[in-house]
Design a protein around this nucleic acid. Structure first.
Lengths: 203, 203
DNA sequence: TCGATTCCATAACAATCAGTATATATGCGT
DNA sequence: ACGCATATATACTGATTGTTATGGAATCGA
């Protein structure tokens, strides 16, 4: 294996920052969806030409997967933080309040890239959908495990199943994403969160 | 105003049934989204040629709005039934179980056309999105009014706000649509519903 | 049977799609 | 200074997008 350290750099050096360009691409995919984002949109926002894009990222699909990596790493960091909260209720609250922040930030597109990409369902986007669904499943698995721990902690009532509670919480989060992507205000999303927390099961 | 009764029918009669063709078009939009559905897809499924489509429906956008009308009238009929349930809890349960039926029927595409169309966010689809959002708002208004009545009936706790409860229930419904559109099984959706009902506020 | 009228079918339209071929520019080691 | 390797810029590819013009076919009232 080769280190990622600065290699000798044989040929002509590229004139743009790959990470920065990827971040711009993420913004376009987030705002317009996978199919809605054209290569012209992408190269425009990234400030590079098409051959440069293909050389650096492969093709549109590969670019999207890398943008999804970045999205998970940066914009979904709060989900990993949420799992560390001491109570199941705290976990849920951190998830939902983090979702509000991520989905209504004024410097980012509205809504959730995962939900947008899973809902956009052209035929060519099947591999995109599969990737998003797989990532969601793995993220749900972590939450299920966290709720199992909560039950062992006596933090959740006996009659609550971690799998069901996870599906339920994810439904709320996805619903919030749909609403924020449809122009819902932060105040409206907060009402959803307050209502959810009001009903959260107590041990 | 002219009656819709069979006019003398001046020229050559059309060789296809408009309602049937519209129903086929709805299926395509439902399965592939507004932007994902091409005119070729549509004419293929409808069994007509492009000029016939344009003559009968105007253009792609007008066709979509009419398909949305049909969707509301046929596939969302359960929501009007739900509002008639005697208790707020019954209303919510009817909404959610109706959503399961509508979103996992084996003879229809999975998921909810409204959610799919609101999430698909190309630039050209702005008018589509606006239509879907407006219809959702009007449907939410009816549910808010129903929950207000429930409060007057002493059917909901005092501290529950009809607006918040509506946003919350819609979030769950939209989340279920996202999940069913992403391959969730009926059993998984039923877990969401059971969990939601378990937490439903009692007066 | 004759317009008049409306429909269907084929083919074309300009625009856009994702992706690439070609040519030129820039850096390295030698 | 030379070749090698890589990046950039322009222009192009074939396919597909939504939409429409054209020509023939079908049904009407007269």
């Amino acid at each position: 294996m080769e280190s990622t350290a600065p290699l000798p750099a044989k040929g002509r050096p590229r004139e743009f920052c790959v990470d920065e360009a990827l971040s711009k691409a993420l913004g376009v995919f987030w705002a317009k969806g996978y199919e809605g984002a054209s290569m012209a949109d992408l190269t425009d926002a990234m400030g590079i030409t098409k051959p440069s894009l293909y050389a650096a990222f492969g093709n549109k699909e590969a670019l999207f997967h890398k943008a999804l990596d970045l999205y998970e790493a940066e914009k979904l960091a709060y989900t990993r933080e949420a799992l560390k909260q001491p109570t199941a209720r705290g976990v849920a609250e951190h998830f939902m309040r983090g979702a509000i922040e991520a989905q209504t930030s004024t410097c980012d597109p509205k809504g959730c890239l995962g939900v947008i990409s899973a809902a956009a369902c052209g035929a060519e986007a099947e591999s995109i959908k599969a990737d998003v669904i797989a990532r969601r499943a793995s993220s749900q698995e972590a939450l299920i495990e966290r709720f199992r721990q909560a039950k062992r902690d006596g933090d959740l009532p006996d009659h609550v199943e971690p799998e069901s509670l996870t599906l339920y919480l994810y439904a709320i989060l996805q619903g919030m994403a749909v609403q924020s992507g449809s122009g819902a205000s932060r105040a409206e999303l907060e009402r959803v969160v307050e209502t959810s927390l009001m009903m959260w099961p107590t041990a």
